[in-house]
Amino acid sequence: MAFQIPPAARLYLRPTQFADTPIGRDGEVARLAGGLQWFAAYGLVGVEAGKRTVQATITVADLPALLATLPEPQAVHLQALAGRISSPRPAIHAGDRVIRFDQPMVMGILNVTPDSFSDGGAHVDDPAAAAGVGVDMAAIGAAIVDVGGESTRPGAAAVWEGDEIKRVVPAIERLAASGTPVSIDTRKAGVMEAALAAGAHIVNDVAALAWDDRAVEVVARAGCPVVLMHSPDPAKGPHGGEGYGDPLIEVYDWLEARIAAVVAGGVDRAKIIVDPGIGFGKALSHNLALLNGLSLLHGLGCPVLLGASRKRIVGALANEAPVDQRLGGSLALALKGVEQGAQILRVHDVFETVQAVRVWRGMRDAALVGR
């Protein structure tokens, strides 16, 4: 090979060169996370002292030959990464529903807050109407409805735990009774407990269970799936941070460490979903690096959630479009995620995103069986 890998370098693999079909390409392509995407190469990155010292492309067919040239620790590490990248993600359960990760799905956002950045106030103080909106989301194709009672927009005021519970529980009870899979978007252990008792099935925490000292214990005891989202310093809030040297690698490393800590606390790794935290403590350049390199996160071996709907990145790239005029940009980001194997898209515009994913799925199905 035309490059050298320093023996002290920490190595990463990112699936690249996605293939239209695996037909007739045995040994040349690998399947991504047991899903609908196949890829022909890995982007190999080596990092020493925070700097990339290796950047190369290795074909799937050439990976075994590369492994044979490496010291055993690096070879074992890369082999494990390749295995995680390709292995199917275990399904999760939401009541009687089974949620599989072999194709992309949509998570609908249902805010019962007065001040969320996109739809704050739309469903406040009317749990029946809020639940009706959630049921409608499920009817038009949302696999999960994500209920939140505290805004995480920059500058939002903190909400007392009791008030947050009063906001979310009545809507969750109604949604759960309808058979709708529900996640609770909160960083507070008390809210998690109340929401799970009301019928929520999944915890979605912007603080990756690091804001509340009891959060890991609550999730471990419940045995429920959990979304761990990256933010630079979750103990201080989701929008802190002092910048990044290499946002993609740093977010990967942070999530890897957080997964290990949460698993050590008793949470089942097979029930962990990761979220790179687009827009949380990140500038435009950081968000773009994460979106362009999103497939690196499959090396963690967990399903990937992408939440970029209506976020500031769309306005920044599209003539400062206001929040209610960011549908086109949101769909572009959603499909960028799907192309890189993201399994869950957390969105405001459920109908349009479901339609976009179904069209994408139809094209993938045709490519996988045809020539």
Score class of each variant (00 low, 15 high):
197 A>T: 14
184 I>M: 02
190 G>Y: 04
211 W>E: 13
167 R>L: 12
204 N>T: 11
183 S>Q: 10
175 L>W: 04
134 G>V: 07
185 D>F: 03
188 K>E: 00
178 S>G: 05
140 I>Y: 08
182 V>A: 11
153 R>Y: 07
136 D>W: 14
132 G>A: 10
151 S>F: 01
199 G>N: 12
198 A>V: 03
141 G>V: 11
160 W>Y: 08
178 S>K: 13
200 A>K: 03
157 A>F: 11
170 P>S: 12
175 L>Q: 03
172 I>L: 09
138 A>C: 13
189 A>I: 07
200 A>V: 09
169 V>K: 08
206 V>I: 15
209 L>Q: 09
149 G>K: 00
147 V>S: 00
174 R>A: 15
146 D>F: 04
188 K>D: 02
209 L>A: 05
179 G>V: 13
145 V>L: 11
178 S>M: 09
164 E>L: 03
190 G>L: 04
187 R>E: 05
193 E>D: 13
207 A>G: 10
155 G>T: 07
133 V>G: 08
182 V>Q: 12
152 T>L: 00
205 D>F: 05
151 S>T: 08
137 M>K: 03
165 I>V: 15
179 G>T: 12
164 E>A: 02
161 E>Q: 15
167 R>F: 06
150 E>G: 01
201 H>R: 02
170 P>W: 08
151 S>I: 03
207 A>N: 02
138 A>S: 15
210 A>H: 05
155 G>V: 13
186 T>M: 06
158 A>N: 11
191 V>K: 01
184 I>F: 01
169 V>D: 04
203 V>P: 00
205 D>H: 03
162 G>W: 06
202 I>V: 15
140 I>V: 15
209 L>S: 10
167 R>P: 07
185 D>K: 05
199 G>I: 10
157 A>V: 08
138 A>P: 04
192 M>E: 02
204 N>I: 01
208 A>L: 06
160 W>I: 10
190 G>F: 06
192 M>C: 10
163 D>C: 10
202 I>K: 04
153 R>I: 06
147 V>M: 09
179 G>A: 12
169 V>P: 00
170 P>C: 13
169 V>F: 13
205 D>L: 03
196 L>Y: 04
185 D>H: 03
141 G>N: 13
200 A>G: 08
139 A>D: 15
171 A>N: 09
159 V>I: 12
199 G>V: 04
174 R>N: 06
179 G>D: 13
191 V>G: 01
180 T>V: 15
163 D>I: 14
182 V>H: 13
166 K>W: 10
146 D>R: 06
199 G>S: 09
155 G>I: 11
191 V>M: 06
194 A>V: 05
169 V>C: 11
143 A>I: 02
178 S>T: 12
209 L>R: 02
147 V>G: 01
153 R>E: 02
205 D>P: 07
141 G>R: 09
142 A>L: 07
209 L>Y: 07
139 A>Q: 15
189 A>P: 07
